[in-house]
């Protein structure tokens, strides 16, 4: 018990749990989102401790960063339409019907029992049990990349990854569909200092994002983390109003959304010749093909995440009117 790392681990785990509780119980919604982002970052830190730097990067960039931005944007919109924008704190945005304390308590006890059961099951599971370690180690030389996580994502389980990009595509189609004709809340305006900061940060962010993508073949990083960082560029562009989506850009946007899915799926299909099956890249071209797929997927992820942040489809301004049919 004298190992300082164990003390660190315990403290971090307790902090994560405490932040989760705090985020759910704090009354102010803005504080809730801030606590949640901190929670996400600390979880990422814990995953670094568990030697999962790729996951930590993805969680910090997407799980905490992009999700936090989405939540803040939504909170801003909700407070705008409910007319509580100027008020100091927002205690909830939906009209609440009070729930009897007994019901909440019963639910909490129920969930507590489930959690207890899961904890017992977890303690009973074999620690550091069987896994894919040996299989991956054996197959890595034939994968075309050097970093195991990238090998799993883009070769061994590429089908999952393709479908994950499909999920993103489905999300952006659904969001455009849902938000058609919603009058937009005026975007939060950044102060002058922030404008300057954003201009400075933009090129640096682009460099970091591209680097993450490039390095993914042999070190932690890759399409999703790189895409998320590049999406941050999009967010900054949108927030500083350096870029305002126009209806005429819809075609390009649609193209960018489907680019990753389309290229990924096409490559997966086209390699199936000469006795190979779908997704079976010929070894001599594997690295090139994987880099091609990663590049296209990164562009799609960046544009899609930025579009998810922006929300509604850019349409010709019909102030307040709906084109609902």
């Amino acid at each position: 018990m004298t190992d300082p790392l164990v003390i660190f681990d315990v403290a971090l785990a307790l902090a994560i749990v405490a932040l989760a509780v705090a985020a759910l119980s704090v009354r102010d919604l803005f504080a809730m989102i801030v606590l949640f982002v901190v929670f996400g970052l600390l979880s990422a830190l814990a995953w670094v401790r568990l030697s999962a730097p790729d996951v930590a990067l993805a969680e910090a960039a997407i799980g905490a960063g992009v999700t936090g931005a989405l939540l803040l944007k939504t909170l801003h919109h909700l407070r705008y339409v409910s007319g509580t924008l100027g008020q100091q704190a927002a205690y909830g945005v939906t009209p609440l019907t009070p729930v009897p304390i007994g019901v909440t308590l019963a639910n909490a006890i129920f969930c507590g029992l489930i959690t207890l059961g899961l904890a017992v099951a977890y303690l009973g599971a074999p620690a550091a049990g069987p896994g894919f370690d040996a299989l991956v180690a054996e197959a890595m030389p034939r994968s075309g990349v050097d970093h195991p996580v990238t090998g799993v994502l883009l070769n061994f389980r590429a089908y999952d990854t393709l479908m994950e990009v499909v999920v993103l595509l489905a999300a952006v189609v659904a969001v455009w569909q849902i938000e058609r004709g919603v009058s937009d809340a005026p975007a939060p305006v950044l102060g002058e200092v922030w404008q300057g900061f954003a201009r400075l940060a933009l090129p640096a962010t682009v460099v970091v994002g591209t680097y993450l993508l490039w390095v993914g073949a042999e070190a932690p990083g890759g399409a999703f983390q790189g895409g998320a960082v590049l999406a941050a560029v999009g967010l900054l562009l949108l927030l500083t109003r350096a870029y305002v989506p126009q209806p005429t850009h819809r075609g390009i946007a649609r193209g960018a959304f489907v680019l990753g899915t389309g290229v990924f799926a096409l490559v997966a299909l086209l390699v199936a010749s000469g006795g190979r099956v779908a997704f079976e890249y010929p070894l001599e071209h594997a690295k090139t093909l994987i880099l091609l797929i990663e590049g296209m997927v990164t562009i799609s992820i960046a544009v899609t995440l930025a579009a998810l942040f922006h929300g509604r489809e850019p349409v010709a301004q019909t102030k307040g009117g709906r084109d609902d049919t």
């Binding site: 999962a52 790729d54 996951v55 993805a58 896994g131 894919f132 991956v136 195991p148 996580v149 090998g151 799993v152 994502l153 061994f156 389980r157 999952d160 990854t161 999703f224």
Partner: peptide, 8 residues
Amino acid sequence: PVPHALVI
């Protein structure tokens, strides 16, 4: 590495 990819 497989679960890492799954979590991503």
